[in-house]
């Protein structure tokens, strides 16, 4: 088994996919860092102060002004209201949610890339894991070996999980290393608030508690990994089912992007919450933003994603072991 996994790792390594993905991240992070840096500088200039409390107060007032305009969609209004109450809570407890520093950047990057960017990167690896062997014909050589089929597929799957973990690790290291050059490397122990829940436009703060920043980040990266695992598994299934890598990529791309679009407009279509792509923004439950559909919770989303992943695994193993290869 170990040799099989090693063999798959070697194939992945030879294809240089991991290398390309790391290069993409290494190229994107400086851009985001610069954008963030510019934003900080502009707010400082506009308000003439570096005091975060004044800046947060100004954000609150801006939101209040948006809320007072009558032509606002109901779901956006609720979203803003919840965020506003949360910002006020941070301010009242004198905790800065956006203290500059590389850990904050890591956290913001994770929160913003969990829905689309990281799933896309994972998809690039997972898409041709099986389908390329099918279209290239090498699958026959692989299957003529005296090894059970499910073992071969399992070794591929383990190699995929390892690569996903590696990508998440690289993202963490790269965001920390690069953004730290600009924002500084400190800020691991500052307090963060978590445990907000929302109901309608009310923010419920009974479960709110303080946790150190490093714990918060570890939690978010755990969720990032979980999302990548689910997306990877789904792509893996498609890769087993379809011979063409392009088709696998196309389907996954469409699903992921439609997820981003759907989250902006499904607030009244309740059964949409069983689709996997609306559940990808898991970090929102940790930082207390309003979920796209009323009634979604962290437990619910994780369960939905897990069911999708399990179904995908069963389908892939079933078809791969039963299929005729010619």
């Amino acid at each position: 088994m170990i040799n099989l996994v090693y063999n798959e790792q070697l194939k992945l390594f030879r294809k240089k996919r991991l290398f390309v993905i790391i290069l993409i991240v290494a190229f994107l992070v400086p851009i985001f860092t610069y954008a963030q840096y510019k934003q900080v500088k502009t707010t400082e200039e506009r308000l003439g102060t570096t005091d975060w409390r004044t800046q947060l107060q100004q954000e609150i007032v801006d939101t209040q002004n948006r809320l007072s305009s009558s032509r606002l969609q109901e779901d956006i209004r609720q979203f803003l209201k919840v965020r506003l109450t949360q910002q006020q809570y941070y301010l009242d407890h004198n905790i800065n949610p956006n203290a500059p520093g590389a850990p904050t950047f890591m956290r913001v990057f994770a929160e913003n890339s969990i829905g689309l960017l990281l799933p896309l990167l994972v998809m690039v690896i997972a898409a041709d894991l099986v389908s390329s062997e099918a279209s290239g014909g090498t699958i026959k050589l692989l299957l003529t070996r005296p090894v059970k089929r499910w073992k071969i597929l399992l070794s591929k799957y383990i190699a995929l999980l390892l690569s996903i973990s590696f990508i998440v690790l690289c993202v963490a290291i790269l965001t920390y290393g690069i953004s730290g050059l600009v924002f500084g490397y400190g800020g691991w122990s500052m307090p963060m608030l978590t445990g907000f829940t929302s109901k309608g436009e009310e923010l419920i703060t009974t479960g709110v508690h303080l946790i150190p920043h490093w714990e918060y980040i570890l939690m978010e990266f755990g969720l990032v990994w979980f999302v990548c695992f689910v997306v990877g598994t789904l792509t893996f299934m498609l890769s087993v089912l379809l011979r063409s890598t392009a088709a696998v990529m196309g389907i996954m791309l469409a699903a992921l992007i439609s997820g981003v679009i759907l989250t902006n407009m499904v607030s009244s279509w309740h059964s949409a919450k069983y689709l996997f792509m609306v559940n990808l923004q898991l970090t929102n439950y940790v930082n207390g933003l309003k979920p796209p559909i009323e009634g979604m919770t962290l437990g619910f989303s994780i369960a939905v994603l897990l069911i999708w992943a399990l179904a995908a695994l069963i389908i892939s193993f079933f078809t791969f072991t039963k299929r005729d290869v010619y």
């Binding site: 790792q9 390892l162 973990s165 939690m219 994780i302």
Partner: peptide
């Protein structure tokens, strides 16, 4: 591979922590 396993372990700890916490 070693790095990947390490990272997977860390992420699983994080995931477990979220479950416990939330």
């Amino acid at each position: 591979t070693a790095c990947s396993i390490l990272s997977a372990a860390l992420c699983l700890i994080g995931l477990g922590w979220v479950m416990k916490d939330q």
